[in-house]
Simulated scan of single mutants.
Amino acid sequence: MSLRQTLRGTGVAIVTPFTKTGKIDFSALESLINFIIKNGVEYIVTLGTTGETPTISKEEKIDIINFTFEKVDSRVPVVVGVGGNNTHELVKDLNTLPLDKATAILSASPYYSKPSQEGIFLHYEMLAKASPKPIILYNVPGRTGRNLDAATALRLAHEVPNIGGIKEAANNMVQCMQLLKDRPDHFMVASGDDDLAMTQLACGMDGVISVAANCFPRKFSDMVRAGLDFDFTKAKELNDTMLEAYYLLFAENNPAGVKSFLAEMGLIENYLRLPMVPLSEPLREKVVRYLRK
């Protein structure tokens, strides 16, 4: 079964809760996992960039992966984030992290180095050969500094076994349409832009890997399911109620926005690891007013 079938719908790029002392708050993580699954999302993505992975050690990643598998308990699929700009280190990670229970690997395009398209292709080709699970490409040029062009993504999809899909977060509708026009049948295309997700579903995307669904799992996943059913009257009604939230979630940075929402909802404590810091007070007050509405 392809990832287009297995991961159709809403995946949540789950945050990593921390305590005041900077330790991983596993109790809060369990509560968040249960909240998300209870409210109807299709799958969970752990250790994505929303999970502050650049600040998390290898040992902590292993603990988070094992804990997530244990608490999800096969209720929904789990995708594990394994990305970075050191190709050979990532190959080692793919061979040593506990990935047996993962459905797929989400791997962000190499950041900062700004490789050529050929370099990006060869990077993912090496990861795909090493990975025990299908690779989901992750294109987020706003973070990485280099776009994964549609032509390169499609070349990977058509030529490299074990490349199963892409999370597309380039904020570029034309590029999305190019991917959807020429993809092979097995290749999943998921939105990585919450604010564009509804319109991208209308173009034919298979779902969303969402930040907003951490705090609005029921409403957001209902919106996505309506879009997948081409019921855009219902999808628009739901999406309209979240437009202000999309702005607040990303106005300063991610995951400061979503952690502020989750803290105000009583699900986690509002702690991040440097260099990330909580939302500024004026923006936090807007989050509080939005939730009160």
Rank of each mutant, 00 (worst) to 15 (best):
L127Y: 12
A28C: 13
P217F: 08
M205S: 13
P54I: 07
R4Q: 06
N139E: 02
G51V: 14
E60T: 15
N270W: 04
G204A: 15
K133N: 10
Y271Q: 07
R183Q: 15
G207Q: 07
P275H: 08
A245W: 03
V41C: 14
G40E: 11
V80Q: 13
G83H: 06
Q175I: 03
E52S: 15
A104Q: 08
L3D: 00
R4D: 04
N34T: 04
P184Y: 10
L180E: 13
L249T: 15
I14F: 10
K293Q: 11
A263Q: 12
M1R: 01
K61M: 11
G192T: 08
Y290G: 15
R289I: 12
R292D: 14
E168G: 13
M265N: 03
V80A: 10
I37W: 02
Q175T: 04
K286L: 02
A235S: 08
I37N: 08
V140K: 02
K23W: 02
R4S: 09
L248F: 03
V82T: 09
I56M: 09
S31H: 14
S191M: 13
E252Y: 00
N162D: 04
G145L: 00
Y124T: 04
L272H: 15
M276L: 05
L90A: 15
E281Q: 11
Q175V: 01
L106A: 12
P255Y: 06
S116N: 03
T6D: 03
H123L: 05
I65H: 08
E30Q: 14
E237C: 05
N214S: 08
L243D: 06
L127W: 14
G165K: 12
L262D: 10
Y271R: 08
C203S: 15
T50G: 13
T144K: 02
K114Q: 05
